[in-house]
């Protein structure tokens, strides 16, 4: 008696291929990103794995050592600048006067559902 028939093999192979596709879907975008939003709508997504500098609505951002911070902003309170650099999944920088927010998105499975304080 054969342990594996050709039909078995075909089934196994096709299921394997399907699962690899799902795997690819679930694990794509692996890495950490900063999503920059204006008035709640995402306007820019930046990888944190490469250092860079950019601006959104006159707010200057800098990506360095896998973290992102606001370098300068025209807002009066400068809370966004004072918040400093963020890098953990779910962390945010908020500039209320300019209606700009930054959120870290990563695939980190053990990270928090919410960051407070």
């Amino acid at each position: 008696m054969k342990l594996i028939t050709l039909r078995d093999l075909a089934i196994i192979l096709s299921i394997l291929i399907i699962s690899v596709i799902f795997l690819a879907i679930n694990f794509r975008d692996n890495g950490t990103y900063a999503e920059i939003s204006y008035d709640g709508k995402v306007v820019k997504t930046v990888s944190l794995s490469e250092d860079s500098e950019f601006s959104v609505n006159d707010i200057k951002f800098s990506v360095k050592e896998n973290s992102v911070c606001v370098v300068s902003s025209p807002c009066p309170d400068k809370i966004c600048v004072k918040t400093g650099a963020i890098k953990r999944n779910g962390e945010t920088i908020i500039c209320l006067p300019e209606k700009v927010s930054v959120r870290i998105i990563s695939d980190d499975k053990v990270s928090a559902d919410i960051i407070v304080g």
Partner: peptide, 21 residues
């Protein structure tokens, strides 16, 4: 087969999100 089914089952449920001021 069971390993494959576990991975296939990983497809996420629809989650709605929204940010606003």
């Amino acid at each position: 087969i069971s390993t494959v089914m576990i991975f296939s089952g990983c497809q996420k449920n629809k989650i709605y999100t929204s940010d606003f001021f």
